[in-house]
Amino acid sequence: MATPSTATPENIVSLDLADQSLREVNGALQEARAGYYRVRNPRGVHALACGLDGPIEVEIDGHAGYYLAGMNKEARVTVQGSAGVGVAENMMSGEVWVQGDASQSAGATAHGGLLVVEGNASARCGISLKGADIVVKGSVGHMSCFMAQAGRLVVLGDAGDSLGDSLYEARLYVRGNVKSLGADCVEKPMRDEHLKELDELLARARCEGVSASEFRRYGSARSLYNFKTDNIGFY
C-alpha cells in the first residue's frame, strides 16, 4: 500500500456538497491519485467517498451517511463526526478513521486496510470480515464479527451479545466485558505472537497508554464450519 500524501495547507482541495452534487464530488475523489481533499457539508449523505482508488487523503467535515468510503483502495478517509451504516464496507486497502461513532455493520466484508472508530460502533461491526483490521476505541454492539472469515477486530471497550457468532478465522481482541459469545466462538490464550500483533495494531490506531496485555482473545472453535458426514441427516 502506498503511503497517503502529507497535507500542507496550500494544497488542500475543497469540495462542497452544498454547491456540488454527490456524483461530482465522488467523481473528483475517484479520479484523484494524489493530494488532500476536504469535503464540506456532508449532511449525512449516503455513499460518499466510495470507490476511491489512489493514495489520497480525504477529510469529511461533519457526519456522514451510509456506506462512507465503501470499497476504498489506498486512500485515507477521516470523518470529523459519525458515520452511518456500513462505513468502509468492502474496503480493500487504505485507512478510514471515524472521529465519532459508527452505525451498524461497520467494516462489513472488508478485505484489507484499517478502520478506526474513535467512539462506539453499533451492532454487527465487522460482519463477514474478510481480512481488514478494525479498531474500535469504544464499545461494539451485538453480533459483531458475525461469520467473519479473516482479519482482526480490536475493541477497547465492551462487546455486546453473540460476539463472533459462526466465526471462521478472524481474530478478536476485547479489553472490556463480552456480554455473550456467539455460536462456535471461544476465548483463546494470548500467546506472544498475539501480543505482538495486537501491540502493532494499537500503535497503528494511535491507542496511547493501552497495552496488549489488557486484552482477551476470542476465535473460532472450528466445530461448526466444516462439513461433517455425521450431520448429513440435518442438511
Binding site: 449532511r43 449525512g44 449516503h46 461533519g62 457526519h63 451517511g65 451510509y66 459519525s82 452511518g84
Partner: peptide, 17 residues
C-alpha cells in the same frame, strides 16, 4: 437516517446517537 435531521437548527452541536 441522520440525513433527515440535518436541517434542524443547532444539529451540529446536538447529542446524536
Amino acid at each position: 437516517e441522520y440525513r433527515a435531521l440535518v436541517r434542524l437548527p443547532g444539529i451540529e452541536h446536538a447529542k446524536v446517537w
